[in-house]
Simulated assay, not measured.
Amino acid sequence: MSSILDILAVTGMIAASLAVSVPLTGALVRLRANFNPKSIQLDAEGNVEPHTGPVVTSFFGMLARVKRIEGWSGLYKGLMPMLLETSLLSIFVLVALDSSAMRYGGRIPSTGILGRLAYATVALILNLPAVVVTYRAITTPYRLPYFRPIYSLRILLTPTERRRPWMIYTAPGLFAAQFLHLVYKVIFVGSLKAFLLPSSEEPGDKPLLNASPVAIGVMIAIGLLSTVILCPLEVIASKLAIQRNHAAPEYNSVSQEVEEDGITPEEYVEYAGAEEDVIGLRHEKDPYLGLVDCAKRVIDEEGLRALYRAWWLTAFISLGNALA
C-alpha cells in the first residue's frame, strides 16, 4: 500500500511540475535560441542588410508571443520528451537510489568530488540526447503529435542523425558547453559548498542553520556571481542543441539535411492562421563551428547582452543550488 501511495505521490508531483515548467522552459529555450542580430548587418558583398525577423528581448515577452502565435498547444511543445525523461529518472531514483541521488541540475550524491563528477558525467551522457530532442521540439515550427514518436523524430532529426545517433555527441561545441556547465557546478560550487556548509549524515540535517553568517554570505555571492559563467554556457547550449547534423559532402557537416524525408509536416502558423514564426534562426548553411566560435559569433552578430538573456533565471537557480 505504501509503495502504491509513493508512486501516486511521485506521479502527482511530476504532473504538477510539468504543468508549470514546460511553458516556462519553452519560453526560455526560444528566447535564448532566437537569432536577433543587430539592426544593421552587411551581406557577403558588403551591402547593408536590415534584419527582418522577430525581435524579442524579454522572457515574458516571448511567453506572450508563443501564446499569441501558437496558442496553448504551443506553450506545451516539448511536453512528451520532458515527461519521458522525468518519468524514467524518477523511476530510476525510486528503484535504484535513495532520495538524495538526483540528476545533474539538482543535488548530486555526496560521494566526494570524483564520485559526484562521475555520476554527473554519466547523467550528462544519458541526458544529452533528451536535451537535443526537447529543444528541437520546442523550437520547431511544425506540429508534433503527442503519441507518434517515430513521426516526430523524423521531423526533429535528420536522416543522418537517425542512422548515426552518436553524431549528437559530436555536434560542434554542445557536449563541451554542457560539460563545462556541469564541471563548474560540481567541482567549484559543489566543493566550496561542502567546505563552507558541511552536512552530517543525520536525517533532517540543515547545514544553513549551523553555518556562520560569513559562510552563508560567501555562498550567496558565489551563487549570484556564477551567473556570469553559467548563463553564457546555457545560451550557447540552446543554440547548439537545435543545430542539426548531416553528412551531405557538398554542404558543411552541421548544416540542414538536404535530402527529402518523405513527409510534409503541418506548421503551427497554418493551424493558428498566423503569418509569422515565433523565433528566427541563423541560416543552417552557415552554422556555428564550436563553443568558442558560437560565443564569438553571438557577440559579433547579436551583441554581448545576447549571452545573458534571462540571466535573472540563471541567478535564481544558481542561488538556490548554492544554498540547497
Rank of each mutant, 00 (worst) to 15 (best):
R164P: 06
Q256P: 00
V95C: 12
A9E: 07
L225M: 11
A221H: 00
T11D: 11
L24T: 03
T314S: 12
Y184T: 07
K77C: 11
K185W: 04
P232I: 01
C231H: 09
L114D: 03
Q178S: 13
V228F: 13
K285G: 15
L117H: 02
S73A: 13
A221L: 15
V292T: 05
A15V: 13
T52A: 14
G217Q: 04
L289Y: 04
L94C: 00
R282W: 01
L75E: 00
A324S: 14
M80E: 04
I242E: 05
V20L: 15
S99G: 12
A247L: 08
P207D: 01
S253T: 03
S199L: 06
I113V: 15
S3H: 10
V218N: 08
T86C: 11
Y308P: 04
E302N: 07
V95T: 13
Y151F: 13
F316V: 04
G112D: 08
R282H: 10
A9I: 05
N36W: 00
V133Q: 02
G105T: 02
I299C: 07
L196W: 00
V189H: 03
L208S: 12
Y104G: 12
P23A: 06
Y184M: 09
E45R: 15
A33Y: 01
I242G: 07
L97A: 14
F35Q: 00
S73D: 10
Y169M: 10
V132W: 01
Q256R: 15
A130V: 15
T11Q: 11
M219H: 07
L124M: 12
E276L: 08
A96H: 09
G74T: 05
L63Q: 01
G115C: 09
E49Y: 01
R282L: 09
Y119R: 09
P141D: 12
A274Q: 02
P213Q: 06
G106R: 07
P141M: 03
A123N: 15
E267L: 15
N210T: 12
V122F: 14
L124F: 01
F59N: 04
G190L: 01
F188L: 15
D205G: 10
E234D: 09
C294W: 00
Y271L: 15
E45N: 14
T134G: 13
R68D: 10
V131L: 14
R68G: 05
I108A: 10
P23R: 03
A16S: 12
L42Y: 02
F188R: 04
Y251P: 00
C231I: 03
P249V: 03
A33R: 02
V10M: 12
H283G: 12
L94P: 00
L323N: 06
A177I: 01
L157H: 10
